[in-house]
Every structure is written in C-alpha cells, then in structure tokens.
Design a protein around this nucleic acid. Sequence first.
DNA 1: AGCCTTTCGCTACGGGTCGTAGCGTAAGGG
DNA 2: CCCTTACGCTACGACCCGTAGCGAAAGGCT
Lengths: 211, 211
Amino acid sequence: MCSRPTPRPAPRTGRPRSAEADEAILEATREVLVELGWSKLTMGDVAGRAGVAKTTLYRRWANKNELVVDAVAVLFDELELPDLGSLQADIEHVVLQFAALLERPETKTALMAVVAESTRDVPLRERIRASIVERQKRLVLDGRRRAQERGELPADRDPVSVDATDDLIFDVVAGAVVHRALVSAEPVDTAWVNRLSALLVGGLGAVAALG
Amino acid sequence: MCSRPTPRPAPRTGRPRSAEADEAILEATREVLVELGWSKLTMGDVAGRAGVAKTTLYRRWANKNELVVDAVAVLFDELELPDLGSLQADIEHVVLQFAALLERPETKTALMAVVAESTRDVPLRERIRASIVERQKRLVLDGRRRAQERGELPADRDPVSVDATDDLIFDVVAGAVVHRALVSAEPVDTAWVNRLSALLVGGLGAVAALG
DNA sequence: AGCCTTTCGCTACGGGTCGTAGCGTAAGGG
DNA sequence: CCCTTACGCTACGACCCGTAGCGAAAGGCT
C-alpha cells in the first residue's frame, strides 16, 4: 500500500516523476509533523527538508491537507488483526495497536486536523475515507467474521442489520480510543482496554437481539 | 455560564472592558465559522464583523484557538439531561442532543480543529477541558446517579471502579457520536442511537462484573 | 467636578506563508 | 535523436499575523 500523490492522467511520454522525491516528501512531512506539529508545518519547510523545490510539492498535492493525509496514511498499514483465539482478545489487541498509533506525535497532531478540514472539503474527506478509514473498517469485518466462525457470535440473518452493527462497532471502538487519547488525554492502558472490550462483548448480544 | 475572555487580574480602576464587545466578538466568530470554516477564519475578519478593532481581540484572546473555544463553548450549554424514566431513554436523548450540536456547521468545523491544536498546546487543552469536556462529563455522572436511584444499576461499591466506568462511558458515548458524525460522516439517526444505547445498557452489566 | 487609569479605534509596520509564473535544464520514451 | 514532461530556481503579489504607537473615550475615585 504505497500512498499515491494526486492522481495524474497517466502521461505516456515525457520525463517520469521521481519516486524518490515522492518518498522523500512524505518522509519530510512526517518529520515536520513530529517536530513542529500540523499548524506550524509549511510547504516551504517540507520542500527544503526533502531536498526538493516547493513547486514540486504543488505539482503533486493541491494543498497541505492532502499531503498530510498521504504522509500519515502509510502508518495505518501496521494495523493488523492476528487471531488470538477469542473475540475479546482480538478486540483488545487491535485497540492497543490503534492507541499506540495515536500516541505517535505525527498521527496525534495530524489526524484530528485533517478530519476537521474534511468537514468542509469533500475531496479531502473521500481521500481520508479511502486511505485511512476503510483500512480500519476492514479490521472490524475480519474480527466479526472470525468470531462467527468460532461461534462467539450468531451467524448472519438480516444482512442490513449486520452492516449496521459493523458500522456501530467501528464508530464505538475507533471513536472511544480517539476520544480517550486526544480529548480526555488519558492513557489507553490495559485496564481501560479491558473495560472497553468487556462492554463491547457484553453489549453485542443485546444489539443482536434487536434484529 | 457566560464564557469569559482571557483572565485578567481584575483592575479596580480605569475604563472597564466592554461586555457588548465581548459578545459581539464571540457572535462574529460563530458567524465566520459558519460561513468560512475554521481554517479560513481570520482575526481581522472577525474584528471587522464585530465592529471592533483587531487590537481589541488580541487584548482578550492570545490567539485564534482560544477565541474559537470560547465562541463554541456556550453552545454546549444547551445540553441537558431531563429524566425520561429509564437509563436507555436518557442515553438516547442526550446522544441525539449531542449529535444535533455536532450537526451545526460552527461546532462541526471548530471542535476537531481545536482538539487537534490542543495536542501541542497545554493551556488550550485545559481551556477545552474546563469549558467543554467537563460540562459534558457531568451529564454522564448525573445519568449514572439516576440509574442507580431507579435500581437499574447497582449501588457503588469500589469508588475507583466507578470512576473508571464513568470515564469509559464518557469516552465511548462522546467518541462514538463524534466519530459517526465527523469521520464516518453518516447520520446519527434514531436507528443508530437505538443500537448504541442497547450496546451500552447491555454491556454495562458486564463491565460492572469486572469489579 | 476633576483626575487617573485603562480601554478603545485607528494606522502602520516587519515578518512570514501562500500559491503561481516563468525560465532554462534534466530525464526518459518513441 | 527529438519530443514531452518533470525539475530546480527565482521572483512575485496577495494575504494574514501580531505588535507598536497614537489620541480619544469612558468609567472609578476623591
């Protein structure tokens, strides 16, 4: 999953864009995010650190937000869902992974900022959805499927209801972790994760009973 | 609960600060948030609409973020927790209220932005906590107390555990709603709220069993 | 009333960032 | 080898920031 700059209509001729420059720019962006944070990140600074002209940045990304999304999106590749034998164990593992990701200064400062911008920028929202949100959501689908295979959850009956429950679980888990880490600004430790997973596993039965 | 500008050491003499200017500035800030969003909001624009000199803004707020927090904080006053007779009904009501608040363009664009900034600005985080987060958290405490009075939840045993559960519920509810509304960008309708409240009420028993 | 202190509106300013234009050069593809 | 595009560089106007300095206004205090 390499993040791609702004989609270009694939010219078949002329000098190709430098892939090294792509990676250098994204790397420099993450660097600046760590050192200065999102609000103090400037395109000129990123270009300088990447050893690239500022105009090169603008040839690939329309603005700061799209650049930052691409720079941070690759970090979400490390989210995985190993089979730990039980739904609760799977949940706790992925929650701790996600929390660790949110502890990194580059994601902490960038994620909320781009989400805030996306409320007024539809293309940006779509970019976030495709490169970050969709990737996380797959983990929920995989986790449910495994739990069903183990018999921890009943098999699908109403597909609409299943989708709604998947959506709910995703928003609850991701939202709770983000809120705990960034709004409450308190640690996502094992004690908290235990409580969260207990809440989810205990509540899933009640939700399934809704139909 | 009127939001106060930057705390001043209460001079007992000299010309008092204009309270009308305070309100005009905060009102103008909300106006600009609605029309232009957080990222395009400028201090000069706010000052112009408020009929006030730009220097007057800087005498009261150190920067854009603190101003926006104060301008948005008053909107959270409308959150209330009427007693609807059951824990689930109370939850659903407050969730729908919170969702309606997040639907307003001024809160939608401002809330995530200032939270993002607060990850690198401790005074700002404290301001958000005091004027917004604490106000929401009180609703959780009230809701739990009522549910205990009704006998829907067991009486307190371990106070530490109770605090931890309150924290968890707060992060889960607020986080889930924010995530649904701003990240997933899907409507917080009654169907979704029903599922969320069912999850919470059903899961609370399991959490209480943890001790 | 009259003084004192602080706020107010106004103007101006240096410093910084944005996003773009224009140029000559570099690097592949047919 | 030519054509097309990317690249680095410089320069630019536009905008916003946050502050300084000024004279005027508005209350408190005696």
